[in-house]
Design a protein around this nucleic acid. Structure first.
Lengths: 154, 154
DNA sequence: CTGCCTGCAAACGATTTGCACCAGC
DNA sequence: GCTGGTGCAAATCGTTTGCAGGCAG
């Protein structure tokens, strides 16, 4: 599937989900989602804002926050937690995991079928597990090189 | 091991690590760590502050943030990322995973030996994996009950 | 002594909210 | 026309920082 197709499919899904939830479809929602689909990484709200402004220059920061939250609520977008300060967002898609670099805080997607069917723990507590995702923490190539020899700078 | 023993052991480790890093040992550091050991959940900095103030009433908020960051740096405490707003902290210990409730944002620890030895993916990218932890997302018993029948309130 | 640590208050960055107006249905 | 969405600016929340003492080593 091409990038354009993926985008179109997502926008369509957005329209469906908005409808299901009785929410109007707006240009802002479409553009925010589109910007997110086009990115391969996990942008912060501000990065999304920058992208969207290229096509919708008058959009407000607050709206981007509101729209992102809405997209998360209706299940099209996932808010991923990140050790860094600002929250990151990504479109919901295939199950995948994250490599997080403790050096530069970069986050890389990892798809690995062997990790996709963990036997879910039979939690006695009655917790209802809907999904899971693994966070691998470590050092990316660049940071690993940098740390050679150093103990700790700060 | 009793709770008191665990606390003592951790404080001792703190003294050792401070020494190793050339950092002075202070009452604030001891109390912050102690407060964290005594909690079974993943408190925010403010929750830690409340606990510590019971024994050290004049401690400042800024100090709690600074001390927590120090404890993370010297490897006694872990900052866990959480979809919610404020960062959470926990003492480093055995490997465990987290159940995160999407309803109330509660986070529950889960120790499960069957999940402790995942075959780490042979990442081609040269990423250096040091550790991992799994996030299970779902609904806790309370929130699961609440959602029965509702579609979505807000 | 000297350097790191602390308390306080102010600064900061990310996110949320109140309000007046506009657009989708 | 009513409901919910948007832009703007102000408020809020979590966290960090600058500075003047204080205390550990």
């Amino acid at each position: 599937m091409s990038q354009a197709d993926r985008t179109a499919a997502k926008v369509e899904q957005l329209e469906r989900n908005c409808h299901q939830h009785g929410l109007p479809m707006t240009a802002q929602r479409r553009e925010v989602l589109q910007a997110l689909v086009l990115r391969l990484d996990h942008p912060t709200a501000d990065q999304v804002l920058d992208d969207v402004r290229k096509r919708l220059p008058e959009i407000s920061r607050a709206t981007v926050f509101r729209v992102l939250e809405t997209l998360v609520r209706i299940g099209i977008v996932r808010k991923v937690c990140h050790p860094g300060s600002a929250a990151r967002y990504e479109v919901e898609g295939r199950r995948h995991h994250h490599l997080v670099c403790t050096g530069c805080e970069k986050m890389i997607d990892l798809e690995d079928p062997t990790l996709d069917h963990l036997s879910l723990p039979g939690v006695g507590s009655g917790f209802h597990i809907q999904d899971y995702s693994i966070q691998f923490v470590g050092l990316c190539t660049t940071c690993a090189r940098k740390q050679k020899g150093h103990v700790r700078s700060s």
